[in-house]
């Protein structure tokens, strides 16, 4: 029972708020919360694995989110014709181009960041915090230098604008699409982690890196791959979040970083399942609380984290000795 409890938390939270709102509001808010959760999951999953595998705390992770968001703006700008076209194929092509560009740019930035800074500070959390916070500041300034400090608008592809009715609730199309994309990525990641040798080595490495190395696996090399993949996913999350907001500022990554760290801590550092559950909880809480008690919305995620850590000090899905 105790081991199942974290899995039951999501449905329990969803059911618990039902009596306080109409069914249509509940459905709309739940979809909105899950959509936000999916995007948070994309942004956070790399961070949790990076910590799990090499014990590296990367506060610059938000920089990859920002970069992804700005790449989306830059790619979608010239593609306005495709974005507003009636053809869903052109719509999707534009979106795909934006997401791919975000993934590649953030992945390459991650590769450089790992090689230049991260590998110099293995083993020292203090140095990691100083150097990655510094990296985040530099990245923020670079973004401002390249794209300017003013907020930039971007448009959703025509087919993902607007909303539709589902059981009497108005559901934004984009949110439904975000849920779908998030589920596909989660399923893919789950399969990679649970059905392949690389996934097996990553899961083992998160639990006990030293033993994995003693079995002949080059964990550092693997870590670089995970770091790059995690950065690319953060870029995708950032691009999707930018499309969702339709307006971005240079602080987008910093704002999301707070939520991303809450997600990773709630889930249990190093756990992908925990990260997924944590992301959904944060997304749902933000939407439910924003509707029921808007004044409390800001503090609700911190309160959620405190409550969960009081219940489970090492997060919902504790990993190894972490």
């Amino acid at each position: 029972m105790n081991r199942l409890a974290p899995y039951l938390l999501l449905p329990a939270v969803m059911l618990a708020v039902m009596p306080f709102m109409s069914h249509s509001s509940w459905l709309a808010l739940t979809v909105a919360g899950l959509a936000m959760g999916m995007m948070l999951f994309l942004m956070a999953s790399g961070l949790t694995l990076v910590f799990g595998l090499m014990d590296v705390l990367n506060f610059a992770h938000g920089g990859f989110i920002t970069l992804g968001a700005y790449l989306a703006v830059s790619v979608l700008g010239p593609l306005t014709g495709w974005v507003s076209s009636e053809s869903w194929a052109l719509n999707l092509l534009a979106l795909l181009a934006a997401v791919l560009a975000a993934a590649i740019a953030s992945g390459v930035a991650g590769l450089a960041f790992e090689a230049i800074l991260i590998r110099r500070v293995y083993g020292s959390h203090l140095q990691q915090i100083l150097i990655t916070v510094g990296g985040l500041i530099v990245a923020g300034e670079l973004i401002v230098a390249l794209w300017g400090p003013q907020p930039l608008p971007l448009a959703k592809p025509a087919i993902l604008r607007g909303s539709f009715l589902l059981f009497g609730a108005t559901i934004e199309t984009y949110r439904m699409a975000a849920v779908a994309v998030g589920l596909v990525v989660y399923a893919g990641m789950h399969a990679l982690l649970n059905r392949t040798r690389i996934g097996l080595v990553v899961r083992a490495g998160v639990e006990n890196r030293e033993m994995v190395e003693a079995l002949g696996y080059r964990v550092r090399r693997l870590f670089v791959g995970v770091f790059v993949a995690g950065s690319a996913l953060a870029g995708i999350g950032g691009a999707m979040w930018a499309e969702y907001q339709e307006l971005i500022t240079p602080s987008i990554g910093g704002e999301m970083t707070i939520l991303v760290f809450i997600v990773v801590i709630i889930g249990g550092l190093g756990s992908v399942s925990g990260c997924f559950t944590g992301a959904m909880l944060v997304g749902l809480a933000a939407n439910y609380v924003g509707f029921l008690a808007p004044k409390l919305a800001l503090g609700s995620n911190i309160a959620l984290m405190v409550a969960i850590l009081l219940w489970r000090p090492r997060g919902l899905f504790p990993v190894g000795g972490k």
Binding site: L200, R203, E207, N208, E210, M211, A214, V319, G320
Partner: peptide, 10 residues
Amino acid sequence: PETMGIFAAL
């Protein structure tokens, strides 16, 4: 190793 190095979650 002395600590056996078993991966508990696997």
